[in-house]
Amino acid sequence: MSDPVPADAQPIAGPKPLFGRVVVKLSGEALMGKGSFGLDMPTLLRIAADLKAAADLGVQVAVVVGGGNFFRGLEGADKGIERARADSIGMLATVMNALAMEGALEHLGQSARVLSAVAMPSLCQPYSRQAALAHLVKHRVIMLAGGTGNPFFTTDTGAALRAAELSCDAVFKATQVDGIYTADPKKDPKATRFERLSHDEAIDRNLAVMDTAAFALARDNRIPIVVFSIHEPGAIRAALLGQGRATYVMP
């Protein structure tokens, strides 16, 4: 696979981002747009453009994307599929989304690679820490697919794991709302947004924006988590520059 831009291309000069290397966690549902299943191409291209804009800042960007727009392991288990098997199906869904995002990024001229924790070398490169780091330093956006490669772990936990493994400065959790609230703001009009929390506070308050294992893994490795809405164009770049509305979960 050839790069659409030279591997040693230099980032575009401009504002200084808060972090130099990040994992961006996207939900599969974020790629549906206003649909109820699958991929919405305008939404896919918008998010790809935002990831490219982040890379243009000079940030090394790794992306973990869920598979809920195609299949969710827990929902499959609820319908009678053995949990380990259902999670395996969900891992395959994340690979589909990662391949789609890789194509969208390359369409925009941003070099990208998919690395999967579930080996499928005819489709993408198997994940290894060494390969991931090599791509990052060449300014490629990497898509980390297949979760952790094991059942019973969410892609949120996978994002925290990869952030620790790749010595990332932060996890950027893109959600449906502009931060972490005391309750679901779509259901409780009195819910208030946190500007800043510690990992322990997020765990103690049982704030469900990420699962407890992900918060604990980030806490133990002193990795900040930035929670923001993915719905506005340029949201990832803005969050990297400390602009817009977000909640910061800090050590």
Results as ranks from 00 to 15, higher is better:
211 D>K: 05
225 I>L: 07
72 R>Q: 07
145 A>P: 11
48 A>P: 02
145 A>H: 09
30 A>G: 15
89 I>D: 00
233 P>F: 07
170 A>M: 06
97 N>F: 06
122 S>H: 09
112 A>H: 10
31 L>P: 03
238 A>F: 03
107 H>G: 02
82 E>S: 09
15 P>E: 08
208 A>I: 01
70 F>M: 03
226 V>F: 13
163 A>V: 04
96 M>I: 15
141 V>G: 11
56 D>W: 06
204 D>Y: 00
192 T>E: 13
170 A>P: 06
114 V>Y: 07
211 D>W: 08
53 A>F: 06
229 S>T: 15
42 P>R: 13
154 T>L: 01
150 N>K: 13
2 S>M: 00
241 L>V: 13
127 Y>F: 15
53 A>Y: 12
235 A>P: 09
95 V>F: 07
85 R>S: 14
159 A>C: 01
183 A>V: 12
89 I>N: 01
222 R>P: 01
226 V>R: 09
236 I>Q: 04
167 S>D: 15
178 D>W: 11
139 H>S: 03
84 A>D: 15
55 A>Y: 00
239 A>T: 15
136 L>P: 01
248 Y>T: 03
251 P>C: 11
149 G>H: 08
232 E>K: 15
202 A>Q: 07
13 A>G: 02
245 R>V: 14
65 V>H: 03
117 A>I: 12
200 D>T: 07
110 Q>D: 14
206 N>V: 04
17 P>L: 00
134 A>I: 04
94 T>Y: 01
59 V>M: 12
173 K>A: 06
36 S>D: 14
168 C>G: 01
191 A>T: 14
163 A>P: 06
221 N>P: 09
90 G>P: 09
35 G>V: 15
52 K>T: 00
227 V>P: 02
52 K>P: 00
91 M>D: 09
189 P>F: 02
194 F>C: 09
184 D>Y: 12
151 P>V: 06
6 P>H: 14
70 F>T: 06
119 A>K: 11
204 D>L: 00
34 K>F: 05
79 K>T: 09
213 A>K: 13
245 R>L: 14
134 A>Q: 13
250 M>H: 14
247 T>G: 03
147 G>P: 05
121 P>Y: 02
120 M>A: 13
72 R>N: 03
63 V>G: 07
238 A>C: 13
122 S>T: 12
144 L>D: 10
239 A>L: 08
231 H>L: 12
104 A>H: 10
203 I>V: 12
20 G>F: 01
34 K>H: 10
165 E>Y: 04
14 G>Q: 02
237 R>V: 07
150 N>C: 03
251 P>Q: 12
